[in-house]
Design a protein around this nucleic acid. Structure first.
Lengths: 242, 242
DNA sequence: GTCTATACAACGATAGAC
DNA sequence: GTCTATCGTTGTATAGAC
């Protein structure tokens, strides 16, 4: 993944074009990321079957959970024989680990690019929130899976996930403090406010059923999270146009 | 469970005394709730062993997940033989269903009592939030379990859980509207605000590790959720003393 | 590279001795 | 009421034909 500049506009389509989180290029990246674990040489073939396997895993894990899903289930859902599966994955647990690894790499990529963009406080917050929501749109299955199946992963990966969340909130707080120093914001409990944002963003992928039911769009939700954050920062909507 | 009046003060200890969600009386209630499913007649013995079984289940499910936990694990953790276990539970799936049923009954109990209290808008919201936080304190294992293992439960129970969440948010919105009618609140998107509260309350039990780490207490967190709700309702802190 | 056939461990559940 | 012993099933994983 290359570190190109951040998209100029905040919209699903701009995000989609700027970041390689879907289609064949994405699956190609996934393939590179755990090439070692599999025995298949032919790249074209491998990428296609990887996609089938991961997609089937998401479907079954969403329905009944990863632990409850048997490899026989997976084999029939992915239309690949049991023996065939094992040329693509090292073991069942391995499959889960790889999924977590890919998602975390994607998140790191976004965080990195955003830091390089170096925007003013309000714009940074808005970009952070909208990007996270767009990200969930592209990688919903991955988020869902990683959240629900975290307990089944190696301790090391569990730890990395917790640290990612702490780092995210700390970086939010840093932006708050930049804005406070600039006289744009006021906030008594910045860390609690940061965790409010985390809670809202997490709810977006955890409770997709609820927002589908209420016909709340990506942008509706992102805008609401952003607005409520600005309220928490005692920041008037007019300043938000920055 | 009897429908006594709501505690006068909002504090953990008052809540603890007013509601029967811990200690021997609580386990007695649990016993009554699935007496049918078990073969043991002796009530004293049954209650004691039920507590051991449920406690062990929570420990193992929290560590590795309910599906990944075998009944042999459970048998040794609870210090009851495999055969013995089956005099207390109908089946493994049954055990999960009972847990969900008990928690939902507890929540219904609280909701019911709160409705009977019939307080003014601001007080209702404050009581709702603090009660929910106290509830999680007493029944943390149950909440944790039900959230994580929902997928493994019968469709009917999954549906009831979703409906409980929708009902909770609708009742929040109704309180908002009472306050708006009275000129106390202003709010453009009441349903979004309600789901913000849900997200924050859910985070309290989902991310216990985070708040333990930061030494945020029950009351700290409840107060923050309440304050941020009032901000969302455009309600000055002074009015909150009501 | 992909399949079928199979190994063997672990599972949930039960029967029957105590 | 509780235990040990055991049933049949299903799980992950692999070997070897094609």
């Amino acid at each position: 993944m290359s570190a190109a500049p951040w998209p100029q506009t905040l919209s699903m389509s701009a995000f989609r074009e700027a970041l390689p989180f879907e289609g064949e290029p994405f699956w190609q990246t996934v393939f590179e990321m755990h090439r070692e674990k599999m025995q298949i040489k032919n790249s074209r073939l491998a990428v296609a079957n990887l996609e089938k396997i991961f997609t089937a895993t998401f479907a079954l894990a969403a329905e009944k959970g990863f632990q409850a899903m048997s490899l026989r289930d997976l084999s029939s859902e992915a239309q690949i024989s049991m023996g065939g599966l094992y040329s693509y994955i090292g073991s069942k647990n391995d499959l889960a680990s790889v999924i977590e690894g890919v998602l975390r790499a994607c998140i790191d990529e976004v965080v990195l690019r955003l830091q390089q963009a170096d925007l003013p406080p309000v714009a940074t917050l808005k970009t952070l929130i909208f990007s996270e929501i767009y990200m969930v749109e592209l990688l919903r299955d991955w988020y869902q899976f990683c959240f629900m199946e975290l307990k089944g992963l190696p301790r090391e990966q569990q730890q990395l996930t917790l640290e990612l969340e702490l780092r995210f909130e700390r970086s939010l707080v840093q932006v708050f403090e930049r804005g406070i120093a600039a006289g744009e914001f006021r906030c008594a409990q910045p860390l609690m406010l940061a965790s409010q944002v985390t809670a809202q963003l997490e709810q977006w992928h955890l409770k997709q059923w609820k927002f589908k039911l209420r016909k709340v769009s990506n942008d509706d939700y992102a805008q609401y999270v952003f607005d409520s954050l600005l309220r928490g920062l005692d920041c008037t909507p007019s300043a938000a146009q920055a």
